[in-house]
Design a protein around this nucleic acid. Structure first.
Lengths: 217, 217
DNA sequence: TAATAAAATGACCACGTGGTCATATAGGGG
DNA sequence: CCCCTATATGACCACGTGGTCATTTTATTA
């Protein structure tokens, strides 16, 4: 049920943006529980009571931020899917991963919120929020794979579920490595230039396509 | 610097175990910040001051728990590496992933702590703890891969860094999916029986080995 | 048993939290 | 000008936190 109240939407649109942005900052830095309303209103220079007037409670504020993040991700990926409709499977997933990396560049704070979200198991309605992400990720990859099989880009005897799982794992981790040094275990993804990233994705998808073993066998 | 103090080790070993176990519970359930010393001593039925006498502060307690977790993981994997010394690459990584899944069964709480750790970016000395994990994971996989290339199980033109990155991603995610329903995007890993897991790992490694594309090029 | 050292205790502290609400302020329409 | 409604405010509340330390209890040694 939570989210923004009428009062909030009647606000001057500049003020709305300022509040959204500061809230994104707060949650991206501290996660849900350690985010502080006191700190937030301090930064914004408004009264504490106002936040509760606008969003009811802390979760209402988070919910508003989260829905905004989901919408932003979705619109980016939808565009890619459409723009690459005519390309082969491997070009399409390459474009998708590039869009993912570019999303982190454009919205680093939103991506941070996603990372925090996923592993903090306990905050209110967590399941509900997670489902929104995951369903989308599956809904996005599965059609790509099925089209890929139909067109002969992928061998017919490959289990689509297994393929989706592998793509999801590797792409997710690639993005994590790009954003967080910790995940970059020697691959050099973190802090790489756009060109280098491009080459790495190329190699990554080649490996996915051809496999580990030598061709004959 | 933190960790357990002399006083703690002079305690009756049963009491030491009881405290360790309760602390694991607390951190696995709540993560570092939301873990409560008050709650912990409540469960244990001892005085709050004692915990600070044993471990100095909250981080000291966590550090003790974490080192224990690291040791437990290491010993399991070391055994696998040695036991499979003579097998081919694909059998060896299969055994490693099976050990991972079995570790979650044996120590679900320790695995939960690991998950929480990784994404809570802010607690004291986080970097230090993370390095301990990651270095080990790289140190473990790289030799396996290099041996695999030398023996001809892996094609010689495959970049070892890329191979390590992919293995690390997919295996990590497989374990996450086994432990947390959220990550199981349609693959059916979560809650699967040992037999089913065995077959899934088989298929997973086959896909890794043979790639997505059909054999002819 | 007396003396000494080690371990256990829990009342207490300062602090930050999410949330409340009576009151003040502003803006429009009559 | 007044009235009424929508908005803004911040002092205040109850609570839980990590951490302290003077005091008591227990164990060890002489």
């Amino acid at each position: 049920m939570p989210g923004a109240r009428k009062t909030f939407f009647r606000l001057d649109s500049e003020k709305q943006k300022r509040i959204l942005s500061a809230a994104i900052d707060e949650f991206a830095t501290w996660g849900f529980h350690r985010a502080s309303i006191n700190r937030l209103v301090g930064v914004l220079g408004i009264a504490k009571g106002s936040i509760f007037q606008y969003f009811g409670n802390k979760e209402g504020l988070f919910s508003y931020v989260f829905d905004y993040a989901i919408e932003t991700v979705k619109s980016g990926l939808k565009k890619v899917r459409k723009d690459t409709e005519d390309l082969d499977f491997y070009s399409r997933i390459k474009a998708s991963l590039l869009e993912g990396v570019s999303f982190i560049d454009r919205h680093p704070r939103l991506y941070k919120i996603y990372l925090k979200m996923v592993f903090q198991e306990d905050f209110p309605s967590r399941e509900k929020y997670l489902k929104k992400i995951r369903l989308f990720s599956v809904d996005y990859l599965r059609p790509l794979i099925e089209t890929g099989i139909r067109r002969g880009d992928i061998r017919g005897d490959l289990d689509p579920d297994m393929a989706a799982f592998m793509l999801d794992s590797v792409f997710d981790r690639f993005m994590q490595a790009y954003a967080v040094p910790f995940f970059d275990s020697g691959a050099g993804i973190h802090g790489a230039s756009r060109d280098e990233i491009d080459r790495m994705i190329e190699r990554l998808i080649d490996t996915l396509r051809l496999g580990f073993s030598s061709r004959e066998k």
